[in-house]
């Protein structure tokens, strides 16, 4: 007998899961590579090549990269990542609801219980 489930997303057909996870890995990989720049790569030339480059007139760049710039680029990256992932999450939900008739019965039953309809509204 079909019954509602607490986590309907687990019971979606495999193609939805594969699509979402593929997008997530793509986005995360791009942000991870960018993160390695601020965490590792730009600190390699900095102590040698950029030591005599002065910001704001007097601030050595190699120092400032580690003491200030890296931190705030790191903060910014989290908020941008969050914004991008919100978009991906919403796309995942929209896709699943658009294919309402193709969803397994237990998923539809759970969604109805949660007040979600094919048009996407949740009470």
């Amino acid at each position: 007998m079909t019954a509602p489930v607490e986590h309907p997303e687990e019971h979606l057909p495999e193609r939805y899961k594969t699509w979402y996870w593929g997008r997530l890995v793509q986005v995360t990989a791009v942000f991870f590579v960018l993160w390695t720049v601020i965490a590792i790569w730009w600190h390699i030339p900095a102590p040698y090549a950029w030591r005599n480059v002065l910001l704001f007139g007097n601030m050595p760049l190699h120092w400032y990269l580690a003491a200030f710039i890296s931190i705030w680029v790191g903060v910014l990256m989290i908020f941008v990542y969050h914004w991008v992932m919100e978009g991906v999450d919403n796309q995942f939900r929209a896709q699943a609801l658009a294919d309402w008739e193709e969803l397994p019965e237990d998923v539809r039953m759970s969604l109805r219980l949660a007040g979600v309809t094919p048009s996407g509204a949740q009470r």
Binding site: V5, P8, E9, E10, F92, L113, A114
Partner: peptide, 18 residues
């Protein structure tokens, strides 16, 4: 299933199941 639960965003908040 548990890993899928960790990976996927919630479709909806389903109340009072089990």
């Amino acid at each position: 299933r548990f890993v899928d639960r960790m990976r996927l965003p919630e479709l909806a908040r389903v109340p009072a199941v089990a």
